[in-house]
């Protein structure tokens, strides 16, 4: 390609690889929050208390239909207005974790709804409490069909981490912006970032598919 400078490429690559580490940490930490919180949101939508169900349902819809980047700004700037100062990392993780927990709650919901009615009845017949039913009968069967969706959102969260750069989280795009403005060269950093994203997300998608079929085989589905 014309004007591509290899020596510059080798010079900036270590910095970008270091930033890739931060991107991966951000994605995994955000995902960990989303996996736990998402299950909470999914279960909250199944309580017999109508007001709780309705409020949680509308909250999930609200988060899902507004842009993540705006939510990141909201969490980061609204705290200080009321005297709560959050670091860029903390507010970024809260925003991205919350955003994806709403998506994951829908995935869990689909999984829970796919469990056959007879399983509920059998659990009731065994005199299980509601907690026991969910923990020992329903959730273990709801997770395998949800795995594909959960995996897609892991890759999705990874691809959304560049939005954290707007509040100063030192991830890939943040590093590429810095390199670009220091050297007045944008071709190499942005292209490398694109290649790094492909190099992570394509194998990740493949691995997730393998893992899913492994779990299905293990459970005899």
């Amino acid at each position: 390609m014309f004007d591509w400078k290899w020596d510059f490429t080798w010079e900036v690559l270590p910095r970008l690889i270091h930033a890739t580490g931060n991107t991966l940490i951000a994605a995994l930490a955000g995902y960990a929050i989303a996996v736990v919180l998402g299950l909470g949101l999914a279960l909250a939508q199944r309580t017999p208390y109508r007001p709780v169900t309705l409020i949680v349902r509308e909250f999930v819809e609200f988060i899902r239909s507004t842009p993540l980047i705006l939510q990141i700004f909201f969490v980061f700037y609204v705290g200080p207005q009321f005297g709560i100062r959050l670091s860029p990392w903390a507010s970024g993780m809260i925003a991205i974790g919350l955003h994806y927990s709403c998506y994951l709650s829908e995935v869990y919901r689909g999984g829970i709804e796919s469990v056959a009615k007879g399983q509920w009845e059998a659990a009731t017949a065994l005199n299980m409490t509601t907690t026991q039913k969910y923990r020992r009968v329903i959730i273990p069967q709801a997770i395998p069909p949800a795995l594909a969706g959960m995996g897609n959102y892991l890759v999705g969260i990874f691809k959304d981490t560049p939005m954290l750069s707007v509040i100063g989280v030192a991830e890939l795009i943040h590093a590429a912006n810095a390199i670009g403005s220091e050297n007045y060269r944008y071709l190499e950093p942005y292209t490398l970032v694109g290649i790094i994203f492909l190099a992570v997300s394509l194998p990740a998608a493949g691995l997730i598919r393998l893992f899913e079929s492994y779990v299905r085989r293990k459970l005899g589905l």
């Binding site: 014309f2 004007d3 691809k159 959304d160 981490t161 560049p162 939005m163 750069s165 795009i173 590429a176 670009g180 944008y186 071709l187 942005y190 292209t191 970032v193 694109g194 994203f197 492909l198 997300s201 394509l202 998608a205």
Partner: peptide, 23 residues
């Protein structure tokens, strides 16, 4: 499809806006 789904929209936006002018 793989390139646009495998990279982030932010990266694509920056690439189109900052890198394409170099070409």
């Amino acid at each position: 499809i793989e390139v646009f789904r495998g990279t982030s929209l932010v990266v694509q936006l920056y690439w189109i806006f900052f890198v394409l002018p170099l070409f």
